[in-house]
Nucleic acid binder design. Structure first.
Length: 469
RNA sequence: GUCCCCAUCGUCUAGAGGCCUAGGACACCUCCCUUUCACGGAGGCGACCGGGGUUCGAAUCCCCGUGGGGACGCCA
């Protein structure tokens, strides 16, 4: 049977790193098996679902390049279908109306907690042969509850965690339709997974406890059970749980911060999954290798430093045109307009090996398109009065020189040797005057790309501004 | 409280009873390269949560602790 997986986010917020990994694994599993990957938006919580969140999730998926074969389906558009199934279950005696008020339920829970019991519905409205039900209250609109089996156990072989067995005595009759008639999560999931022919449910392990309920429901409907794979959660960089209040950020934030989607994907792939010692691989390779057997059952801590390393790697690989475009976009956001000269592609090539993120790359390269901000400590250290005559003579040589890194190097060497100095003694002041910083690629290469006119202008201008030297 | 899950270097992980003197990667440290900073190269530091079993043999299997996490909603 063809593999069919799904990613089923609820649109109550952006796509965060945990959701992204779940989506990635589901997607990769389908791709690996030439199956289908389905996107389903679980928006039955009307109060918390928003169209903005739907959009944010779709944006995140697209940025990562996780393409889906069917959907997006929206559960709110499938109401008729759920209601029909609920009615059928009531008719068949597999579900029943419950007239308990919320207050009544709260009281029940509290009492059970106090007694050290697991809080659960006591089944007071559950019809049984020979049982007399309470009198229906006038003012309580009923919910619909599923008649969960009272004995036996639910067992499944989780593809990540192995065999899990839960006694039906731990479960209660869950609500499948609210008082207003709308179906609830566990019910919609079951109907959808069933009708959409999902063969492998790959999801976060916060759903482990829902699984036995869903299996019971599926069995009541006479559906074929899918296989389950529960992924452990991803912890924040500090080892703490990610939440809206703490550390959980949108995958799009990684875009803003200057991470390439291939780096994020590669990082996520290795978080909780492994293929021997392989660390760096393409998504094509990942789809070929991916399997559920090598997923770690334990939680994983996010490590930004390793992401940085991967991102730096992909920045080195990316072609100059694309890199230049990304950098241009970011410089623009910083209020710097990129001109055709110096050539942005050459500029990024010069700096790509020393940037962890595109944001760093943009910041590093900024001085090519505007006056550098001089690091005063660096200036004080490297630009001393005795260097001024050297700079003057170099300036005049440079004015006569052909403009290539090699020719510039010769000119600098000439200044160095004719004044009896060491190379850095001249290179450092140049570096600070031209780039503003004491760190840069080879200064002759920088000058070659900066251009003759601009280089000479910056040097002249610096000397003119610092007559005290 | 009850149920469920998890446990190898700081972090991500390899490990399916002997291949383990526990391997790789990030980070960190040292050295090399060098025109500064990076990149790159070569080394180094560094872990099987504890206790009992099973076995000729256990990081691997079982049990008990301990520690972490999750779930107990008319949320998903």
């Amino acid at each position: 049977m063809a593999v069919r997986t799904r990613f089923a986010p609820s649109p109550t917020g952006f796509l965060h790193i945990g959701g992204a990994r779940t989506a990635l694994f589901s997607w990769a599993y389908a791709r690996k098996h030439q199956g289908e990957f389905i996107l389903r938006v679980e928006d039955t919580d009307v109060a918390r679902s928003t169209p903005e969140a739907v959009q944010a999730i779709l944006d995140g998926m697209r940025w990562l390049g996780l393409d889906w074969d069917e959907g997006p389906f929206y559960q709110m558009q499938r109401m008729d279908r759920y209601k029909a199934v609920i009615q059928r279950m009531i008719d068949e005696g597999k579900a029943y109306y419950c007239y308990c008020s919320k207050e009544e339920l709260d009281a029940m829970r509290e009492q059970q907690m106090q007694q050290g019991l697991k809080p659960r519905y006591d089944g007071r409205w559950r019809p049984e042969a020979g049982k007399v039900l309470p009198t229906k209250p006038e003012d309580v609109p009923p919910v619909v509850r599923f008649k969960n089996p009272v004995s036996g156990t639910v067992v499944w072989d989780d593809l990540v965690k192995g065999r899990i067995e839960i006694s039906n005595e731990e479960l209660d009759d869950l609500i499948i339709a609210r008082a207003d008639g709308t179906p609830t999560y566990n019910f919609c999931v079951v109907v959808d997974d069933w009708e959409m022919g999902i063969t492998h449910v790959i999801r976060g392990d916060d759903h482990v406890n829902n699984t036995p309920r869903q299996i019971n429901l599926l069995q009541a409907l006479g559906a074929t059970l899918p296989q389950y794979a529960h992924l452990s959660m991803i912890l924040g960089d500090d080892g703490q749980k990610l939440s809206k209040r703490h550390g959980a950020v949108s995958v799009m934030q990684y875009d803003d911060d200057g991470y390439l989607p291939e780096a994020v994907l590669n990082y996520l792939a290795r978080l909780g999954w492994s293929h021997g010692d392989d660390e760096i691989f393409s998504m094509a390779q990942f789809c070929e290798w991916f399997d559920l057997d090598h997923i770690t059952p334990s939680a994983a801590q996010f490590n930004t430093e390793k992401l940085n390393w991967l991102n730096a790697h992909y920045i080195k690989q990316t072609d100059a045109e694309r890199l230049a475009e990304e950098v241009q976009k970011r410089l623009h956001a910083m209020g710097v307009s990129v001109t055709a000269s110096p050539d942005p592609a050459k500029v990024v090539d010069l700096y790509r090996e020393r940037a962890n993120t595109l944001q760093e790359l943009a910041a590093a390269v900024r001085y090519f398109y505007g006056q550098p901000e001089i690091d005063s400590a660096a200036a004080e250290k490297h630009i001393t009065p005795d260097i001024v005559p050297v700079m003057r003579s170099l300036l005049s040589d440079l004015g006569q020189s052909e403009w290539s890194a090699e020719a510039i190097h010769v000119a600098i060497n000439h200044a160095v040797s004719s004044h009896g100095l060491k190379f850095p003694k001249v290179a450092m002041p140049l570096r600070v005057m031209l780039t503003g910083s004491a760190q840069s690629p080879s200064i002759d290469a920088v000058m070659a790309i900066l251009g003759k006119e601009e280089t000479l202008a910056r040097l002249e201008s610096y000397l003119a501004r610092h007559s005290e030297l």
